[in-house]
């Protein structure tokens, strides 16, 4: 499955490479557009030295780590939120006559390599923030772990958003509130948001495990909500649990499509 996905993606990348100028422009465009987020953070810190109890470098670290996970998930899998287009256009039928999972096909369909621009932007921000933080080597191992867990969590959110579209074929944009909303939420320290939001993204939709709980560990900070210390190591468990839920929801969506034809 992974191999098929990689080969499909490679074919689309080769196709995109036929138009190098467009590809370059769109890559730069993605870099600049997501750079706006960092411009906003810069304007905020031109007015204050701390936001929700965190300084500029710490916010950049939280932004960069979540942004990297979000952008990679976006690059690789966010096409699953096109599922309602495929349902309306009838192309989902064409996918169901192929011997490969529809999830792999939808995710790889019209793969857009220029989204790498956003990945690069987030990586640059993270690369600027990390050397200024002096993270002790004993805690730095968490950084790659949290990025991988973040990719799994965001991918699951996208898959859930896709699954919802089997029910809401006419209003697929509903999923944006959760996918892009999740991306926006994790850009800032969760301490800026209300307690009920933080509880919601800790215990229901576990976005807090993308960069907040593991980030607190990396930064050596106390949890403003007072959750126990071991919660910071739960990201892999949260990612696996959400991925499981998302897989079940997606399968239910496909089953529903095949049993109702709509």
């Amino acid at each position: 499955m992974v191999r098929t996905y990689a080969l499909l993606v490679w074919t689309w990348t080769r196709a995109a490479a036929q138009y190098p100028l467009s590809f370059a422009l769109m890559t730069v465009g993605g870099f600049v557009v997501s750079g706006l987020d960092i411009a906003v953070i810069w304007v905020i810190f031109a007015n204050t030295s701390s936001l929700g109890g965190f300084g500029l470098t710490e916010v950049m670290f939280l932004y960069g780590s979540a942004g990297l996970a979000f952008a990679i998930a976006d690059l690789l899998f966010s096409n699953v939120d096109r599922i309602s287009e495929h349902i309306r256009a009838g192309t989902l039928d064409a996918m169901l006559i192929r011997p490969v999972s529809p999830f792999v096909q939808v995710a790889a369909d019209r793969f857009m390599p220029h989204r790498i621009g956003r990945v690069a932007q987030a990586a640059v921000v993270l690369g600027i923030a990390l050397p200024r933080l002096d993270v002790p080597a004993g805690r730095a191992w968490m950084i790659p772990v949290m990025v991988v867990c973040g990719i799994v969590i965001f991918t699951s959110v996208w898959a859930l958003g896709g699954a919802v579209q089997f029910l809401l074929t006419d209003a697929p944009e509903v999923a944006n509130a959760f996918t892009y909303g999740g991306g926006m939420l994790t850009q800032y320290p969760l301490s800026v948001y209300g307690d009920h939001i933080v509880r919601g993204v800790t215990f229901i939709l576990p976005l807090a495990f993308v960069n907040w709980q593991p980030g607190l560990y990396v930064l050596g900070r106390d949890d403003p909500l007072g959750l126990p210390h071991w919660v910071r190591f739960l990201s892999p468990a949260a990612a696996v649990a959400l991925a499981l839920v998302a897989a079940l929801a997606w399968r239910a969506g496909i089953r529903r499509y095949r049993s109702t034809g709509s």
Binding site: G29, G30, L36, D37, D74, S78, R115, N176, Y180, G183
Partner: peptide
């Protein structure tokens, strides 16, 4: 492209 995803619909 959108500020919260270069491919916002």
């Amino acid at each position: 492209p959108g500020p919260h995803g270069p491919d916002r619909r």
